[in-house]
Each structure stands twice: as structure tokens, then as C-alpha cells.
Design a protein around this nucleic acid. Structure first.
Length: 566
RNA sequence: UGUCCUGUGGUGUAAUUGGUAACACGUCUGACUCUGGAUCAGAAAAGUUCAGGUUCGAGCCCUGACAGGACAACCA
């Protein structure tokens, strides 16, 4: 990880409806003027760009109003949760530039208190053990348009409930034999209020509590209470939990002693064009090897974006730009791409690299000789200085930069035409060399020694400047070019077919035999570069000594490609 | 045939809380340039889902439609 740990402070959050609600709460003197948020991932997968939005929102709001943010793992389902995910989530949050201080919690930290709270509800006649199976309970729940009916076990005595619940905890029953339910209202128009399940029996070891428990609380029974015990004031979550809010509030009502109470506020999750954002689908892509892993650079995961070459600042800026609302839409990936280009343009050192080499022989250059030319490291940053790049009579240029029969708006090299080799000399193409199949294998060119450094003393201009590397000095590299993972813009509109049918077969193109300037031999994994005129690249950890591997983060904006498309 | 949420340029958001639609990305011009990058200047693009109503005045308030979404896991 070579990106600097910024703590996200420089993100001056523009206002949104959540900030407005926080300000209203503050002005009404709620919760002693405290603002305390939390980021509550379930450790059942890697974090993605949608989580990044939530992280920025939660940590950002606390930063803005002088509050704090807790990191809390919502680990109430041992069947899905693993330590690997816990590890990766912490890494990703830190990498994004946020700090939860010493406030690292797990829902499982509260299992004892949750159990005690359940006991209290039973004693108050507000919870009961139901012996029915899942299907029966589900049928009794009714439907969104039809009220539910009460369980025959609903009115058991407090004593019996206490005894049964303890037996549940002691492992006296099999999985599925019974559950603990809240006694609320089976006719409520809100399905979540129809005697929701509080505890179920699961004889699966938990990643943190081991086999201490065989009963586990449901999300609804855990989340709000954890918020309460941690002193959370604003519990920000996504829209699908909106219908859970009355239940969230009901539990808080049972728990609350003073004036303090946490408040749940929902916002629309992030959707991005040409990708999927559900952990279930991402897990499927990983498990079935459609991608190389959670950190495959084509994945919208934070680890994937990191490996692809995205920077924390670019992701934070993106999160800021998409804003926070309750409108479910889909944001354009090009906005994300714009955010990295903007950041990398200011910070990435420029280098020269040729993806598809075409040999150029400078016929009037002394064979076997070489010299160093000075190149600017970053025109956007004078502090970045300059470097020396070797030049010789045998070079490689980009195959795309030469056309034998150039169309009107093609400005680059062509027979008889003169162009500038960046930071070096003007060259003119004199002759095209081809193999027996007619394939162009080399170009014979002449250079003008007077143009050293890139300018002609006689003031003559060239239409184009192209990049190059010296054949003898260049380092061979592998370059991985990425394109969108899916071929359709909005996957949510393709409900009829399996999402995997829309995978883009060309999302990864591996190019071997690329040539990069020698300064790149020892490039450190995860460092960023701009290959001049091509795009931004990131060193992949697959690199080996002497054989770097680069990932294309994003291409440079390219007027010629656009012109070609016309 | 329910309850709740949401409808503003192509996309994402704004609109001093009732005062005459703004910003970003994208698109299109042009300038500049040793990256067809960056930068700079400018343009096109919504009259706010629709219909009524209140008001001197409505994207904001009211009513009713319409459209999209969420909710019937012992998932979160």
C-alpha cells in the first residue's frame, strides 16, 4: 500500500438531506448535542464501492459535526461470516483513510446483553417461545395485503417461556425446533411487526464466540440495541431497511431509560453502470472463477479498485460527487473514472511505455551509440523534477502511431511524414519494412540532430508528438488492459436472464512483450504511473524482479479514438 | 388488493425552506499545448411525471392520478 494515509479530513462534505436532519436534531438539542455514527458491515464478503459511499457518509458526518464513528461487525449469522472478511474490511476502511480509533466492536460482543434483554422482554410478557416450524410461522405471517394470524404458542406463561428459552440456550433443542418471538401485532400492515423472530437455534460455531452459543439473535433484534449501547445517535443505513424502522424504534422503546435514543435514517444505495453491487453476485463471480478473486481489478470491490490503481482520494471524491438521496438511481462509471483521472493527473509520474511495439531504425544515427535525454516527470507538478531516458538508433514506438495510408485527421507517423519523439528528436519516416506476409515489421527513419530536446531551431512545427522507448534499454513488461465487467449499462433491467450472461468477454486483455522505459524495472507494487498518451497504470503485485506487470487503471481521454469512431 | 418510500437536463445532484431552475460528469464548438492529456473560453440540453387546487407568485404546500421501488428469509 503506497498511498498515503490521509484521514479523509480534506473531504469537505457538501450538504445532503442527512446532514440537514442531523443539524435539525442538533438545533433541537437532542442527545446532548452529540453526533455518533457507525459503519456496520456484515463480515460475509469484501467491501465494494457502495460500502465506500456508506463509509464516507458515516465517517464524513461525524467529522463534519465533531463526532465519532464506530466500526462494528454485524456478526449474528455464524453460517456466513468469516475472519478473512473481518481482516479485509478493516484494511479497506483504513485504506480509504478513515480511523475508528479504539471503537472496534462486534455484535457478538453484545450476545450476553442481548440474551438478558430477551429475558426482560419475556418477563414483561413481550416475547414468547414458538415451537412451530419455519414454514408454519411463515404461513401465519400473512402477506403484505393479508393480516397474519396468531401462533397457538403466543400466550404461554412467562415461566414456561423462561424455561423454554433457557433450554434453547442450553442446546436442549434441535435447530429449527423453536424460536423466540416478540409479541407485537400479527395484524400490523408492516410485516416486520408481526411477531418478529428474535432468536433462532444454530449449532454452528461462531468466528468469535466459538461454541459458546447455540442461539443467535436476528439482525433486527441486534442492530438497534447495539446502536443504543454504543451511544450511536444517527444510524445510517440503506433504503431496504426503511420498513424495519418501526421495529427498530419498538426495541429502543423497550430499552430506553433516559432521553437519549438512536435514530435510523435511510439513503439510497449506490448503483454503478456496467457492474453489479450485490455481495451475493460478487461472491458468485469469485467462487465460480469468473474473476481471479475479490481483488480482481475488474471487481467493484474496494480491494479490486485498489489493485486496479484507484486512489483513496479519488474514491472519496467520487462518493462526494454522487451525493446522498433517497432516490434509487444508477451512477455513471465515467464519473468514477473522471475522479481517478483528476487525482492521478496531479500526482502520477509520467513515463513512456509501448504496449504494441513497432521497431523504428534511425538510419542516420550512429549504430551502437546511445545518449540520455531529459524528460519531465510531471508537467502538473514542477516539484516532481526530471529524469534521464536513454535514446538510441533502435527504438520501439506504438504500432497505432503509424499508418501507411493515413486518413485526413490522423496526425501521427506516416511515410514521408515528420513527427516528434517526446523529449528527443524529430524523425521522418523514409521506408516501411515488411515480412513475407506483408506485415509491417519495422520503419526506417531519419532524425534531425538539430531538434534534440524536441524543438527545431528553424521553428518548423510537427503535428504530433509520440512516445517511444530505446529497444536495447527497454524493460519487457506485461500489461493488463481492463474494460467494463458487463456489457449492459443497467443490470437491474435484465431480470429475465442470469446476470452472468452479460459478462463482457473482453473485460481483460493481457498484453505480453510490452516495452517500458528502464526506470520502471524496480517499480513498487501499487505505485501509480501515467504512460504518456495512453493512460494511468498501476504496478500489480504479480510483478517479479525484472518483469513488471502493469494494470491499466483508466485510459487517458483520447480525441483520436473518438474521431475514428465518427 | 395493503402499508411505506421515491419521481428535477443523457447521468448524478442543487435550489436561501413559497420568489421565477443551479452545479458536476458526459456531449458539441473554439483557443492553447513537446501527452490528440491537462488547462481555458463558449454552446446545446430539463421548465421539475401528469391533472387540478391554494397563492400576487409553486420544483417546494394541498388533492387526485400515473410511474418506479421496498416489504410475506429461523439473511443482513
Amino acid at each position: 500500500m503506497t498511498d498515503k494515509e490521509t484521514n479523509g479530513q480534506e473531504v469537505t462534505a457538501k450538504s445532503n438531506f442527512i446532514h440537514q436532519q442531523i443539524e435539525k436534531d442538533l438545533s433541537e438539542g437532542k442527545n446532548d448535542g452529540r453526533v455518533h455514527t457507525r459503519f456496520p458491515p456484515e463480515p460475509n464478503g469484501y467491501l465494494h464501492i457502495g460500502h465506500a459511499k456508506s463509509i464516507c457518509l458515516n465517517f464524513g458526518a461525524a467529522l463534519k459535526y465533531g463526532g465519532m464513528t464506530n466500526l462494528r461487525f454485524d456478526d449474528t449469522n455464524p453460517e456466513k461470516e468469516e475472519d478473512e472478511y473481518v481482516r479485509s474490511i478493516m484494511e479497506d476502511v483504513r485504506w480509504l483513510g478513515f480511523d475508528w480509533g479504539d471503537r472496534l466492536f462486534y455484535a457478538s460482543d453484545y450476545f450476553d446483553r442481548l440474551y438478558a434483554f430477551a429475558l426482560k422482554l419475556i418477563r414483561e410478557g413481550k416475547a414468547y417461545v414458538d415451537d412451530q416450524d419455519a414454514e408454519t410461522i411463515s404461513n401465519q405471517k400473512g402477506s403484505p395485503t393479508r393480516p397474519g394470524t396468531e401462533s397457538p404458542y403466543r400466550n404461554r406463561s412467562v415461566e414456561e417461556n423462561l424455561r423454554l428459552f433457557e433450554a434453547m440456550k442450553n442446546g436442549d433443542f434441535e435447530e429449527g425446533a423453536c424460536v423466540l418471538r416478540a409479541k407485537i401485532d400479527m395484524t400490523s400492515p408492516n410485516m416486520h411487526m408481526r411477531d418478529p423472530i428474535l432468536y433462532r437455534i444454530m449449532k454452528t460455531p461462531h468466528h468469535r464466540t466459538g461454541d459458546k452459543w447455540v442461539i443467535y439473535p436476528m439482525y433486527d433484534f441486534a442492530h438497534g440495541q447495539c446502536d443504543y449501547w454504543e451511544g450511536i445517535t444517527h444510524s445510517i443505513c440503506t433504503l431496504e431497511f426503511e420498513v424495519h424502522r418501526p421495529l427498530y424504534d419498538w426495541f429502543i422503546d423497550q430499552l430506553k431509560e433516559g432521553d437519549y435514543r438512536p435514530r435510523q435514517i435511510e439513503f439510497a444505495r449506490l448503483n454503478l453502470t456496467y457492474t453489479v453491487m450485490s455481495k451475493r453476485k460478487l461472491l458468485e463471480l469469485v467462487k465460480e472463477r469468473y474473476v481471479s478473486g475479490w481483488d480482481d481489478p475488474r471487481m467493484p470491490t474496494i480491494s479490486g479498485l485498489r489493485r486496479r490503481g484507484y486512489t483513496p482520494a479519488s474514491i472519496r471524491n467520487f462518493a462526494e460527487r454522487v451525493g446522498v438521496t433517497k432516490v434509487e438511481g444508477i451512477s455513471d462509471v465515467t464519473l468514477l473514472e473522471h475522479s481517478v483521472r483528476e487525482d492521478l493527473n496531479k500526482t502520477a509520474p509520467r513515463v513512456m511505455g509501448v504496449l504494441d511495439p513497432l521497431k523504428v531504425i534511425i538510419t542516420n544515427y550512429q549504430a551502437g551509440e546511445a545518449e540520455m535525454v531529459e524528460a519531465v516527470n510531471n508537467p502538473e507538478d514542477p516539484e516532481a523534477g526530471t529524469r534521464l531516458v536513454p535514446f538510441s538508433g533502435e527504438l520501439y514506438i506504438e504500432r497505432e502511431d503509424f499508418m501507411e495510408n493515413p486518413p485526413a485527421k490522423f496526425f501521427r507517423l506516416a511515410p514521408g511524414r515528420e513527427v516528434r519523439l517526446r523529449y528527443a528528436y524529430f524523425i521522418t519516416c523514409q521506408e516501411v519494412v515488411r515480412d513475407e506476409k506483408g506485415e509491417v515489421t519495422a520503419l526506417l527513419c531519419t532524425y534531425d540532430p538539430e531538434t534534440r530536446g524536441g524543438n527545431a531551431p528553424d521553428g518548423r512545427k510537427v503535428k504530433a508528438t509520440i512516445h517511444w522507448v530505446s529497444a536495447a534499454h527497454a524493460v519487457e513488461a506485461e500489461v493488463r488492459l481492463y474494460d467494463r465487467l458487463f456489457m449492459v449499462e443497467d443490470l437491474s433491467e435484465e431480470k429475465e436472464r442470469d446476470f452472468k450472461e452479460f459478462l463482457n468477454p473482453g473485460s481483460l486483455v493481457i498484453k505480453q512483450g510490452c516495452r517500458v522505459e528502464p526506470s520502471l524495472v524496480q517499480a513498487v507494487p501499487f505505485s501509480h504511473f501515467q504512460f504518456e498518451r495512453i493512460g494511468y497504470f498501476n504496478v500489480d503485485p504479480d510483478s517479479t524482479p525484472g518483469k513488471p506487470v502493469f494494470n491499466r487503471t483508466v485510459a487517458l481521454k483520447d480525441a483520436w479514438t473518438k474521431e475514428k469512431g465518427k
